[in-house]
Amino acid sequence: MPDATLLEVDGIETCYGLSQVLFGLSLSIAAGEMVSLMGRNGMGKTTTIRSIMGLTRARAGTIRFAGAEMRELPSYRIAKLGIGLVPEGRQIFPNLTVRENLVAASANRLDAADPWTLDKIHALFPRLAERGGNMGNQLSGGEQQMLAIGRALMTNPKLLILDEATEGLAPLIRQEIWDCLSMLKGRGQSILVIDKNVEHLTRICDRHFVIERGRTVWSGTSTELTADPDLQHRYLGI
């Protein structure tokens, strides 16, 4: 069962220039918990992730990770605290090989007892072992997503964040990604995931946060979300 709060986002406000996107958004993730962030396109999901990671700094509110305030920290220090990001669009290094992508940022700064290694990533995604000498831009979209997940795991994060986990992937690859996330959850990995597949999210996530126009409008369990089709229709367009 989840225990202590790992990530706490409270009342953040984030702007791009004069355009405000987040209006007092809040969410939380406990250690060992898998949580989704849901909402229609353009409602602020990616901006929330960018605010957490320090890529677009929130101008107000608090963002605490493992008890430490980090809203003012630069992105590289946030990553070193133990947050691994699988960004929207994958953003792997196109001019590095698969192996180089995986080892470039590998670290065990937090002294994980059973750290991720190249061999473990290859066991998780055998295709990456087969494609180890290929350049990043020679991979299919599904292989690039596997590589992005593997690269994040090689930092041995306390929290793994995935922005659009299965967007644009073939059905078989999508299922492979969901199976991977289920396995990671079983290992006790804390996960924050954005995706549009409500069925899969409610099957494997512990809790969900729904946002609308930069505000948290609902939070609850998978059972509660599944039991409320009106809520899904109103905020998720289902």
Score class of each variant (00 low, 15 high):
17 G>I: 10
18 L>H: 13
18 L>Y: 02
20 Q>H: 05
24 G>V: 11
24 G>C: 09
28 S>N: 15
29 I>C: 15
31 A>Y: 12
31 A>K: 13
32 G>F: 10
32 G>K: 04
32 G>L: 05
34 M>I: 10
37 L>I: 12
37 L>K: 10
37 L>D: 10
37 L>C: 03
38 M>P: 06
38 M>V: 14
39 G>S: 14
41 N>G: 12
42 G>T: 05
43 M>H: 15
44 G>L: 07
44 G>M: 00
44 G>Y: 03
45 K>V: 02
49 I>Y: 01
49 I>L: 08
50 R>H: 05
50 R>C: 06
52 I>K: 03
52 I>P: 00
53 M>A: 10
55 L>V: 04
56 T>I: 14
56 T>L: 12
58 A>F: 07
58 A>C: 14
59 R>H: 06
59 R>N: 04
60 A>G: 10
60 A>H: 15
61 G>R: 12
61 G>W: 15
63 I>Y: 06
63 I>G: 06
65 F>Y: 09
65 F>L: 03
66 A>S: 14
68 A>C: 03
69 E>K: 12
69 E>G: 14
73 L>S: 14
73 L>I: 07
74 P>N: 11
74 P>I: 03
74 P>Q: 10
75 S>G: 10
76 Y>P: 00
76 Y>V: 08
76 Y>N: 10
76 Y>G: 00
77 R>Y: 11
77 R>K: 14
78 I>N: 04
78 I>H: 04
81 L>A: 12
82 G>S: 10
84 G>L: 05
87 P>K: 14
88 E>Q: 15
88 E>F: 10
89 G>Q: 09
89 G>V: 04
90 R>V: 12
91 Q>W: 10
92 I>L: 04
93 F>H: 08
94 P>H: 12
94 P>L: 04
94 P>A: 11
95 N>P: 06
95 N>C: 04
96 L>D: 00
97 T>Q: 01
97 T>C: 01
98 V>F: 10
99 R>N: 01
99 R>Q: 08
100 E>H: 05
100 E>S: 09
101 N>K: 05
101 N>F: 03
101 N>T: 00
101 N>W: 07
101 N>D: 07
102 L>Q: 07
102 L>D: 03
102 L>V: 01
102 L>A: 02
103 V>Q: 07
103 V>F: 06
103 V>A: 03
104 A>D: 01
